[in-house]
Design a protein around this nucleic acid. Structure first.
Lengths: 217, 217
DNA sequence: CCAAAAGTGTTCGGCTTACACCCATGT
DNA sequence: ACATGGGTGTAAGCCGAACACTTTTGG
């Protein structure tokens, strides 16, 4: 989130919580603040909304700048009015889900954008911790009744990989048989016909999401 | 929603969707616009967010102005950035649930604030129709897993009255026995001990919500 | 042949749904 | 006594949760 002087009106800020799952952990993209306030702390990417820019478009643009990705799961989260104790402002928060293997983070020496495990975050600027908590609650909820996970995985994947994504986000293990019955009963994934061998064990069948647009089931 | 000239920054508007159930119909509070744009059309109450005012507080204040009520169910809905095609603006929408017998609407000759059945709305200003649709979807959803209905009913009520509120909002009839089992299984209402006679039939037992704060079950 | 992950069914309990009659009262 | 809305139980189906062994491969 960028800080600017104000005039007589509250600023409209934008904040984007970009999640990915990597190494069995849910991670969020943070950048390091190089100036006040909260200099040196980590913060969510964001910025000031410019005149004439629609909110969702601005969030998508910011996401593209940080990750090089478009057409991923992106949803408005909440609008906070107490983000910055130092000045009146309103911050519209979005959250996005990306596949970290497809994301190309910027190489900025000062801002050091990078993925940070949600379990074990450093001290954050503004009330970004509350924003991330809110986003995580929403994400867990959405996993249960939408296909949002499509945005965290590559085109094809195994059911074990999908299960690990769910487990990383929900924070607890799932029963393999029940998970498969559940995910297959809703028809959000389909078997591609292919399979993948990667070790001294039986190869895994490959699946793909039937839709890569947000769907509620 | 009040219209004002702009300078170089988007305005932050506030819109409040105030619902009530009256006469077996879900109704929303509308006021008539006395000036451009959309002069003469009906619109949701709202206004421009002033500097230094927290969003929720501003929504609560606007609700108090229109209905004389405080401490009712009030929840942030969504932040729209395409409300007014004529100028860049962001509108933070809230929705509230009130008991119409407790609400005291303002008597403004020009603005004519009043309750309008959601089924059969007149032509509305801005994209207020979309805001109401969004609020209705959220409300139906919330009825299913929160005690939000407390805010639509007086302190004590009969289970038939409660059922009629649910039916008016959901838009379809519910089975009496199943509704009672369902609402009593969650313990969101309790029998007060009293009853009420009002006609040539058996008196109805009176119930009250166990909590008049928002609770998720 | 051994280790490793993939894949697969059944049982139980609880919740939702459908459905019809008696109760208490006022007129 | 009759009309009116209040109040109640049971059976069936579906869904979620618990739980263990066989399959296929690489080394």
């Amino acid at each position: 989130m960028v800080h600017r002087p104000i005039d007589g009106k509250p600023l409209i800020a934008l904040v984007v919580v970009i999640f990915t799952v990597e190494g069995g952990a849910l991670r969020v993209l943070l950048i390091r603040r190089s100036g006040p306030p909260f200099q040196g702390l980590w913060a969510l990417p964001g910025g000031i909304l410019s005149r004439d820019e629609a909110l969702e478009k601005a969030a998508a643009r910011r996401l593209l700048e940080e990750t090089g990705l478009e057409d991923v799961y992106l949803e408005q989260l909440y609008t906070f009015s107490d983000l910055d104790p130092q000045q009146p402002s309103v911050a519209v928060a979005y959250f996005a889900l990306v596949n970290h293997t497809q994301a190309r983070l910027q190489q900025r020496r000062r801002w050091r954008p990078g993925w940070h495990a949600v379990a074990g975050l450093p001290e954050l600027a503004f009330n970004n911790r509350a924003v991330i908590d809110y986003a995580l609650t929403r994400l867990r909820y959405k996993l249960e009744y939408t296909n949002a996970a499509y945005s965290l995985l590559p085109e094809s994947f195994t059911l074990s990989e999908l299960q690990r994504v769910y487990e990383s986000i929900l924070g607890h293990p799932l029963d393999k048989r029940n998970f498969r019955k559940w995910i297959l009963a809703r028809d959000i994934v389909r078997h591609t016909g292919g399979s993948r061998s990667e070790g001294a064990h039986r190869p895994a069948r490959l699946y793909a999401f039937t839709s890569r647009e947000p769907v509620v089931f």
